[in-house]
Amino acid sequence: MKNKSFCERERSYIERMNKFQLSNKFKIIGYYFTFGVFALMIGKKFFEEPYWVKPLLRGLLLLGMLLISISKDKIEDEFIESLRSQSYRIAFILAILYSLLQPFINYGVGLLFDKNETMEGFSYFQVLFYMLVVQLMVFWQLKRMNK
């Protein structure tokens, strides 16, 4: 009995998490937020800034893109949900391939210019940024194709 209620609680928790979406107005907020942070990232190149500004702006940029990603469309029906799922699946797979291949590509390109090039990793920001960009672009493209 206890096991059953535990499983049911677990299932309802996952279902709630699966259905969680922000309202459409957060999409607009997300766009303003993302473009604002992006402008600041470009602007900061012309000024000297403390060391914590760069990671903070990166975090805020990811947050803005996440807001766009998890906000509902004006009409959020089952078809849009299916397109959204497809875009998440594609973004997830491409981000894994990206993180597997990118160090080798960097290394290969680096070797062309510098024989002493060493293989280096890359930051979490690159992978998450790539994943969110792919998800948003694929979702937008799928919607455009089905207009």
Binding site: D73, I75, D77, E78, F79, I80, N146, K147
Partner: peptide, 8 residues
């Protein structure tokens, strides 16, 4: 639903 859904 959206018009897109009907079209698809």
């Amino acid at each position: 639903v959206s018009r897109q859904t009907i079209n698809s």
